[in-house]
Simulated scan of single mutants.
Amino acid sequence: MKHTEDFKREAVRIALGSGLSRTRVASDLGIGKSTLAKWIVDYRPDEAGSGQQADLTRENERLHLENRILREEREILKKATEFCAGQKA
């Protein structure tokens, strides 16, 4: 699968700023850890920004990722509930 430049840059931004392990970020994005590592070398931003702004950016990215994961988990639970309700009938 060919990923866009924007996807790669976003993956690097999340990997560098989310506080999550690179293994976790790669897994959540559906890419290999070595692929993410290569993208980090290729797309690492030149400047991280000011300290407070960088902290806010990292927290925002972490919350966005956590929100996405929670939405996916909620969908899985909905499907499991529907399946179990169908088995009882």
Rank of each mutant, 00 (worst) to 15 (best):
M1S: 08
K2V: 14
H3V: 07
T4W: 10
E5W: 05
D6M: 10
D6N: 13
F7E: 10
K8L: 01
R9L: 04
R9Q: 03
R9G: 01
E10P: 00
A11V: 06
V12I: 06
R13F: 04
I14V: 15
A15S: 13
A15F: 04
A15Y: 07
L16N: 11
L16Y: 12
S18M: 09
S18K: 00
G19P: 14
G19T: 13
G19D: 10
L20G: 07
S21W: 04
R22L: 11
R22W: 13
R22F: 09
R22M: 12
T23K: 06
T23Q: 01
T23V: 02
T23W: 01
R24F: 13
R24N: 11
A26Y: 10
S27E: 15
D28H: 09
D28N: 08
L29Q: 12
L29V: 10
G30V: 12
G30S: 12
I31D: 09
G32V: 05
T35F: 01
L36F: 09
L36I: 06
A37H: 06
K38P: 00
K38Q: 12
W39G: 05
W39H: 02
I40P: 00
I40R: 03
V41P: 00
V41N: 10
D42S: 15
Y43T: 03
Y43G: 06
R44Y: 13
P45N: 01
P45T: 00
D46P: 03
D46I: 07
D46S: 15
E47Y: 11
E47T: 08
E47L: 14
E47G: 05
E47A: 07
E47S: 15
G49Q: 07
S50C: 06
G51K: 13
Q52E: 05
Q52Y: 03
Q52P: 05
Q52R: 11
Q52G: 01
Q53S: 09
Q53D: 01
Q53H: 01
A54Y: 02
D55E: 14
T57E: 09
T57N: 09
E59W: 03
N60L: 14
R62V: 06
R62G: 09
L63G: 08
H64R: 15
H64F: 00
L65V: 15
L65G: 03
E66Q: 14
E66S: 10
N67T: 15
I69K: 13
L70H: 11
E72R: 10
R74C: 00
I76S: 08
I76Y: 04
L77R: 04
E82D: 08
E82W: 05
F83R: 08
F83H: 08
C84H: 09
A85I: 02
G86R: 11
G86P: 00
Q87E: 06
Q87M: 10
Q87H: 04
A89V: 15
